[in-house]
Amino acid sequence: MMDELELLKRDWQKKDKQLPQLSFDEIYKMIWKKSSSVVKWIFFISIMEFLVPHLIYLVPSMSKNLAVWKDLGLGNILVISNVVQYSVVLFFIFQFYKRYREISTLDNAKKLMSNILKTRKTVKYYVIFCLSLIFISFIVMAVGIYLNEDPMTALGYGYKAENINPDKLKTTLVATVVVLGVVVTLVMGCIYFLLYGILLKKLNKNYKELKEMDI
């Protein structure tokens, strides 16, 4: 094997003449092209993750939901949870920016990978936080419906359900909200895991390989 590798080495070092040669202008044009590196994608997707949940609130039907919360007597809880949410979001944005700055191609391969994965972890915690928040808000809404005298009116439906047993109606509503909460949380979680699973598959594999070497 040694001989074969030495043979390869000798051949490899003679290869220079066969390699393509780019001109000054060709290289010059390249430095202004856009990068497609993994880090860039992680950065974009993370920014989206920060923005999308907030944009949803701007959709008209969602603003109407705010009124529902008030009618259910949960207005105060909403204000408090918003304050908490935004301070946590700000904290995460700061953390994420700090991590992103740490990524440098001048580090050795292992450190570079570890920094990218650390950035990833920061976003992961943020997403877990958001998912829990979504789920908890559904639960709080369910509790609100349960405690409310007239949930149908509070939910914005003008008509009275006369032929239906109010207790039964209430149970159905609560169950629906809880199920919806679980489904929404799961779907969001799946999208998130798929996105990063694909993006970081190669990186994770290579990092594990390097890490195992040093144990």
Partner: peptide, 11 residues
């Protein structure tokens, strides 16, 4: 930088 790009950043 070249190797880092090939192993870590390039998809």
């Amino acid at each position: 930088v070249a190797l880092n790009t090939a192993i870590t950043l390039y998809r």
